[in-house]
Simulated assay, not measured.
Amino acid sequence: MTQVRVVQHLANPADLVWAMVGDFGGLHRWHPQVRSVDLSWEGRIRTVHYADGSRAVERLEARSDAMRRYVYVVVDGKVPVNNCRATLHVKDSKGGSTVMWSCEFEPLGDGEASASESLQAHYHEGLKALASALDGP
């Protein structure tokens, strides 16, 4: 399994960050690549519509508001991977909070480097935009 992990330190309190990140259907509110999100199956399946016209289908596997963490599996998407299991986790840290977005996956064919780079860039861009969204206009 290949792993990708991006960490963002924020000045905002963890509960405030979790209020935004913890909304499984709210990715479009802070990630600049996401145009919209459709929820189905009682909020456990999200279809993510990207600005480039592509989409991904993701299934919520586990969620803990007490731990400020959720785990989801990518069912279908544009990145050439199998068995992609991702985690978004917000923790208290000195002077604010830390957000960790990570995943493990099996690359399709010889696309490990490109899949890793694509996911890393997606997570990094999202967490950077999250920081801006929390700071307000």
Rank of each mutant, 00 (worst) to 15 (best):
Q3L: 02
V4W: 00
V4E: 13
V7E: 14
D15R: 09
V17D: 05
V17S: 08
V17H: 06
V17Q: 00
W18F: 03
M20L: 14
M20F: 07
F24Y: 07
F24V: 07
G25S: 00
G26K: 06
L27G: 06
R29A: 12
R29D: 09
W30T: 03
P32S: 08
P32R: 09
Q33D: 13
S36G: 12
S36C: 08
S36V: 07
D38H: 04
D38Q: 11
D38L: 03
L39T: 03
L39W: 09
W41F: 13
E42S: 12
I45K: 15
R46M: 04
R46Y: 02
T47D: 01
A51Y: 05
A51M: 11
D52L: 00
S54L: 09
A56R: 00
E58L: 08
E61Q: 15
A62D: 13
R63G: 00
R63K: 12
A66M: 03
M67G: 03
R69Q: 15
Y70C: 04
Y70P: 07
Y72N: 13
V74Y: 03
V75C: 09
N82R: 15
N82K: 14
N83I: 11
C84W: 06
A86Y: 04
A86K: 02
H89K: 06
S93I: 11
S93L: 10
G95A: 10
G96A: 08
T98D: 06
T98I: 11
T98V: 14
C103D: 05
E104G: 11
L108D: 10
L108P: 01
G111P: 00
E112S: 12
E112K: 06
S116T: 14
Q120C: 10
Q120N: 11
Y123I: 08
E125D: 13
G126A: 07
K128N: 14
L134C: 05
